[in-house]
């Protein structure tokens, strides 16, 4: 058994329609199963935290949830758009923060009226206003992580998936992240991170992933 469910996900369900439903999702990498089948459900406004150590399948889980990896076992259903904070973000380094977010804002399938927060609000959420006209490639690791977060929050996705969002953030960045999560009334937020790295208070614990026995 590779996954230890510390609390039933269903206990977090509220009355509204689920934004994310995961049923018997099996994860494997290189033909090897990472965790036991997972069940999870999140509705709008809900938050959840999943702990997992190195190699426990956190990133594979998140990438499967946002359609970047195919579902090989079980079922994943989500409603609306996803904001994803990858652990290792990739950016067009030659673009300025504002230009890049403007383009992503345009890419959003949501009608213009519903695309809140817009670019300046997303920059403001993570105190990036002073870097709005800096090329992304010139940002430090911590500011790039803030861009990673701002990118996910842009255009009000219905589901926010944060893979180790605390990476490289200073205390002020952590505070901005906490504030942003608390202000996300509409979005459901799911965070994966190792235990004890500063994410423990960001959301209620849903379950804990453990690495395969032989890993």
């Amino acid at each position: 058994m590779n996954a230890v469910i510390t609390r039933q996900a269903s206990s977090f369900c509220m009355t509204s329609t689920p934004v994310l439903q995961v049923q018997h999702l099996g994860l494997s990498r290189g033909g090897r199963r990472l965790v036991a089948p997972l069940d999870l459900q999140l509705s709008a406004g809900e938050r959840g935290l999943i702990f997992g150590g190195n190699g426990s399948g956190k990133t594979t889980f998140m990438e499967t949830l946002c359609d970047l990896l195919p579902v090989t076992e079980g079922e994943v259903k989500h409603v609306g758009r996803i904001g994803y904070v990858p652990q290792e973000p990739r950016f067009p380094d030659h673009l300025t923060c504002k230009d890049y977010l403007n383009q992503l804002h345009q890419l959003s399938a949501a009608p213009k009226r519903q695309r809140q927060p817009d670019v300046s609000q997303a920059l403001g959420l993570f105190q990036l206003q002073n870097h709005a006209f800096d090329p992304i490639g010139s940002l430090s690791r911590g500011w790039r992580q803030r861009m990673n977060l701002a990118r996910a929050w842009l255009s009000a996705p219905e589901l926010l998936l944060l893979d180790e969002p605390q990476t490289a953030l200073d205390p002020s960045g952590m505070q901005a992240l906490q504030d942003a999560i608390e202000q996300s009334q509409v979005s459901a937020v799911l965070i994966v991170a190792p235990q004890g790295v500063g994410c423990d208070d960001l959301a209620p614990l849903l379950l804990e992933l453990q690495p395969p026995a032989s890993a």
Binding site: R90, F91, L107, S108
Partner: peptide, 21 residues
């Protein structure tokens, strides 16, 4: 170059029908 910059991921995440880009 855009593929290396993660644009395809952003398209999948943001655009339900994928025709904008």
């Amino acid at each position: 170059r855009r593929a290396q910059q993660g644009w395809p991921h952003q398209e999948i995440l943001r655009n339900a029908n994928g025709h904008k880009a």
